[in-house]
């Protein structure tokens, strides 16, 4: 069978989720793999939840079936919880631990340590990373998406090479940010591998 791999990517509008997903998709295409991706537009600039779905390897549908993601990559703790319909016991759950508090006042924002504890009780591969801090260390909080991109490439089952992902990043983002982005990708990679 082909190299199947499904990634559900989620977070909040403005975090660079669609760009990150497009970079992975383009890298997959350049490696000669079948790839489809789904994204929902329209509300992303208004503080809403944003998610994309990426499927590599012989799929026609760009939507991940229930509990079929190989990786859940979340840019924000609570959005991780919102994306759990996609995961199973083998799914790698990688998430940024820095919360973005919504302006809605319906429910109180839960403690991030509590989220991590509960996730670890239920799933085998729970990988919280302080992506926002790593991004700031790399040069700007805006490189958070690159930190998380690096984290994806660290998964042994991920069918793309770090090099092809870096190549696609360079093709999609301005040269003046390449150095910072490379640093961010490396730190994300190390935080999972290391």
């Amino acid at each position: 069978m082909d190299n199947h791999y499904c990634i559900y990517i989620c977070g909040v509008g403005g975090q660079g989720i669609i760009k990150t997903s497009t970079i992975i998709g383009e890298a997959a295409m350049n490696q000669g793999l079948d790839v489809v991706m789904s994204e929902i537009h329209g509300m992303s600039q208004r503080g809403g939840s944003v998610s994309t779905e990426l499927k590599i390897g012989g799929y026609n549908s760009s939507i991940i079936p229930n509990q079929a993601a190989d990786m859940l990559l979340s840019f924000e703790p609570v959005e991780t919880i919102r994306g759990l319909d996609n995961v199973n016991s083998e799914t790698k759950i990688v998430y940024n631990t820095h919360p973005i508090i919504p302006s809605s006042t319906d429910k109180e924002y839960p403690s991030v340590d509590g989220i991590t504890k509960t996730l670890k009780e239920n799933f085998k591969h729970v990988l919280p990373i302080d992506g926002t801090r790593l991004a700031i260390e790399a040069g700007s909080v805006l490189s958070l998406n690159m930190v998380l991109l690096g984290a994806v490439t660290a998964d042994d089952k991920f069918p793309l090479t770090k090099e092809s992902v870096i190549e696609a990043m360079k093709n999609n983002l301005k040269p003046k940010f390449h150095e910072m982005n490379l640093k961010a990708i490396e730190s994300g990679y190390e935080s999972i591998k290391g």
């Binding site: 809403g48 939840s49 302006s103 809605s104 429910k107």
Partner: peptide, 10 residues
Amino acid sequence: NIPSRAPVLC
């Protein structure tokens, strides 16, 4: 019990 994140006026 997670808070909603509906789109809002900016």
